[in-house]
């Protein structure tokens, strides 16, 4: 049994993005997702592909200040937006305190979910600089970690918040 695909014409649309502070202009087919364009066209592979249904959060990026699952955003929808990926957090080769805390607290095992986790945690702290454990667990529930580093990830966020207070 096969399902016959209906091939429709695809629009190619010019878009302009600012990705990790750098303006990028390109032509994209309308049906391609932001994740596809980041990974395949811009070779920013920190955003990972896993579930493609907005459950795992491995593809999380910040779009105009808010985290999104980039697998559920068309690239054309992001036209005119500012995007931050995991690659864009550290500057001049210096890790952010949050990234350092991820390593210090042991929040990284295989690392595949980690770019998404770091991006989500970064946005969480931007919105709520002093979160409770419960707020962290709720705020990062959209980022699955099968290695099960959830406690260590929460520790890293708490430690970062505490470091910022000092």
């Amino acid at each position: 049994m096969t399902t016959e695909p209906t091939i429709h014409a695809s629009d190619t649309v010019p878009i302009s993005l600012v990705v990790n502070g750098r303006p990028r202009s390109m032509q994209v087919a309308a049906h391609r997702t932001l994740l596809d364009v980041l990974r395949d066209d811009l070779r920013l592979t920190g955003a990972k592909e896993c579930c493609l249904v907005g459950e795992c959060g491995a593809c999380t990026v910040i779009l105009d200040g808010r985290t999104v699952d980039s697998c559920l955003v068309l690239a054309v929808e992001a036209d005119g937006s500012e995007i931050t990926t995991a690659e864009g957090l550290a500057s001049n080769g210096r890790l952010t305190p949050l990234q350092e805390a991820f390593l210090d607290e042991g929040a990284v095992q295989c690392g595949f979910c980690i770019p998404g986790q770091v991006v989500s945690a970064h946005a969480l702290l931007a919105a709520n600089p002093d979160p409770t454990l419960e707020e962290i667990q709720e705020g990062l529930a959209g980022n699955l970690c099968r290695c099960g580093c959830y406690w260590q990830i929460s520790d890293a966020v708490l430690a970062t918040a505490e470091g910022a207070r000092r």
């Binding site: 592979t45 690659e87 990234q99």
Partner: peptide, 18 residues
């Protein structure tokens, strides 16, 4: 800190799909 950790928190770790 984990050896190879920096590439993992900055998104630069290359897995097969990358």
């Amino acid at each position: 800190q984990r050896v190879g950790g920096i590439a993992r928190v900055t998104g630069h770790q290359a897995y097969v799909a990358d």
